[in-house]
Design a protein around this nucleic acid. Structure first.
Length: 578
RNA sequence: UGGCCGAUGGUGUAACGGUAGCACAGCAGAUUUUGGUUCUGUUUGUCCAGGUUCGAAUCCUGGUCGGCCAGCCA
């Protein structure tokens, strides 16, 4: 039976359908889902919901999950995307490979072209499809309106003639757009999808899988139901905008099945499988865009540096930024599955990765915007090594040594010459704890000609070694630091939201108008020496600053970190409220 | 304008004719060598109008608002 990750969560409406089907024996207890992307772009966080949903169903109900490329339009599709999508789906943990527990396999819609073509011939013979000579423009012009039927002068073309013409189309004897194959359904249907939809268009175009074999290519609506049918998909899950298409898929399958029998006797053979389509609402985060067209434009316009720019909502972008598959899966579990179109606060994504990394990421000290501190009463050439906990959430993570000396760097924001009330950090006359080291008291500052503080002077209390005062006195603040002589340099990329509006483009109609000009800030940070040689892909918490991920650009000689997300910052909130 | 779909706190989501619950965010407090984490408490909700019923978020009717559809895209 069901084996849910979170046993307490109530069933979503699709799980309820699956359980009802299992109870009624509709599919013999079988659950077989699929993720059917078109290989014409990179996957984004919206796709992740579909992947998690489909794979999760297969996993929780002991079923199978297929990855299937819906590659019916060679004009838009490329092998590069096929490879990238496979990688991203696997990274998310949805293992479609046949040797994995829930892997149903990898499929290409284009491998079914021959079978689909024979279904098309069957429909023509049954009088349910015909070849139409109208151009795309003419079809559009004759589409009709609500209440006004569409028209086609070729609707009653004799079967034999349609059969001959579709063969000619297939053989490449007709130019692009000169003819199409249409289903004979209902030119007056209030559902425009049923007004004799096009099944095949002529496209003299090379296909990433079938090469130049075909000159006609099936339309999505014609193809999709058969893809599910041929793979034995039980629950064909898609997004809301395809609800209007469901009657069409059903019509196609039923049309093929007309005259077919369960045992295959009769002129047409065996009944083919008819999957149940279920529609759910997309995942739409605030403060970003998701459509391939819009994402592509940001890449080509150079607004971002590529599909894998850490600011992009693509799987690759999020991965590079430091998001984990677990955090994305948990998020999808939390937001649920419904038919209600809604926005997901982007804060939920940030929260999801914080929660995950809080448990896993080793703590380190790194100063993003350095300010020099000199300890007046600390011996000039002395160096001490303090034990620092790697992760307070996980004592088993152990400790490391951090060097301490007379000259340190602290965060610029951790010092204020004229601090407001409730500022618990360093200021003239105040005492704070330098994490894992000593209590330090600020005795003065050094300024440059412009009047800016360039150095903070302090004294330390040797009795507070390790960070505790034997006399029991308390300090309000604890700040991070690095020893100037031991610090290593790193480039740190601080990312912010790509857009400043919840719904980019809502205001002016152009989403580019809402771009956040400050979505990337690069700083040159000082890190504690244990971070030297950090391996690519590692994630750390820089204490008090956030979670940081070693970028693919990073080398031992030039470390590069991406800020995945900041820590929650109560002080920032207080400070901004004045 | 025709068809399809939807509407529950700020956000997301439960309830399947019988006490409107959970999560996130917010707020308040406790703990804390990260203004992090954790813990406790807490503010806030059934689109509207009728009807059925002992009883309606749930069923019915009408309306309002929102989304989708009129590609030889998927």
């Amino acid at each position: 039976m069901a084996d849910h990750d979170s046993t307490t969560r109530p069933l979503n409406f699709i799980e309820q359908i699956v359980e009802a089907d299992n109870a009624s024996g509709k599919w013999g207890g079988r659950v077989h889902t699929r993720f059917p992307p078109e290989p014409n772009g990179y996957l984004h966080i919206g796709h992740a919901k579909s992947i998690c949903l489909n794979y999760g169903l297969a996993k929780n109900y002991g079923g199978k999950f297929n990855l299937r490329f819906d590659d019916t339009n060679p004009a838009k599709e490329e092998q590069e995307y096929v490879d990238a999508i496979k990688e991203d789906v696997l990274w998310l943990g949805a293992d479609f490979r046949p040797n994995s527990p829930h892997g149903g396999g990898l499929f290409l819609a284009s491998d079914y072209f021959e079978q689909m073509y024979s279904f098309a011939l069957e429909l023509i013979r049954k009088g349910k499809a015909y070849v139409c000579d109208l151009s795309a423009e003419e079809v559009a012009a004759r589409r009709g309106k609500p209440g006004i039927p569409a028209t086609s002068p070729f609707r009653d073309r004799p079967t034999e003639e349609s059969l001959r013409l579709i063969a000619e189309m297939k053989d490449g004897r007709h130019p692009n757009g000169s003819k199409s194959v249409r289903a004979r359904i209902d030119l007056a249907s209030p559902n425009f999808n049923l007004r004799d939809p096009v099944m095949y268009r002529i496209l003299h175009e090379s296909h990433h899988n079938t090469g130049t074999k075909w000159c006609i290519y099936p339309m999505y609506d014609w193809a999709h139901g058969f893809e599910d049918s041929l793979e034995g998909i039980t629950h064909s899950i898609c997004t809301l905008e395809f609800e209007d298409h469901r009657p069409l898929y059903d019509w196609f399958i039923n049309a093929v099945n007309e005259g077919r029998t369960p045992d295959g006797s009769g002129p047409y053979g065996k009944i083919i499988h008819h999957a149940q389509q279920i529609e759910f609402a997309k995942f739409r985060p605030t403060y970003t865009v998701l459509s391939k067209r819009n994402l592509l434009k940001m890449v080509t316009d150079g607004v971002v540096k590529g599909w894998d720019d850490p600011r992009m909502p693509t799987i690759r972008g999020m991965r590079r930024r430091g998001y984990t598959p677990e955090s994305i899966r948990t998020l999808m579990e939390e937001v649920g599955v419904t038919k209600v179109e809604s926005f997901i606060d982007i804060g939920r994504l940030e929260n999801a990765i914080r929660n995950d990394l809080n448990k896993k990421a080793p703590r380190r000290m790194a100063v993003l915007r350095p300010l020099k501190v000199v300890i007046e009463n600390y011996p000039d050439n002395q160096v001490e090594h303090f034990d620092a906990q790697n992760n307070p959430e996980d004592p088993a993570a152990g400790t490391r040594k951090v060097p301490f000396s007379k000259v340190l760097y602290i965060e610029r924001d951790d010092f204020m010459e004229n601090p407001p009330k409730k500022f618990f950090r360093l200021a003239p006359g105040t005492e704070v704890r330098f994490r894992w080291a000593y209590f330090l008291k600020c005795t003065g500052v050094v300024k440059n000609d412009a009047g800016e503080v360039v150095e903070v002077r302090c004294t330390y209390d040797p009795a507070t070694k390790g960070g505790d005062a034997p006399d029991g006195r308390k300090v309000k603040g604890t700040i991070h630091w690095v020893s100037a002589a031991h610090a290593i340099d790193a480039e740190v990329r601080l990312f912010d939201r790509l857009f400043t509006a919840e719904e980019p483009g809502k205001r002016t109609g152009n989403y580019m108008d809402d771009l956040n000009p400050n979505s990337l800030e690069v700083v040159h940070a000082k890190l504690e020496p244990s971070l030297a040689g950090s391996p690519g892909g590692a994630s750390y918490q820089f204490e008090r600053m956030g979670y940081f991920h070693v970028d693919q650009d990073s080398t031992p000689a030039h470390l590069v970190f991406n800020r995945t997300v900041t820590l929650k910052d109560t002080w920032a909130k207080v400070a901004s409220q004045g």
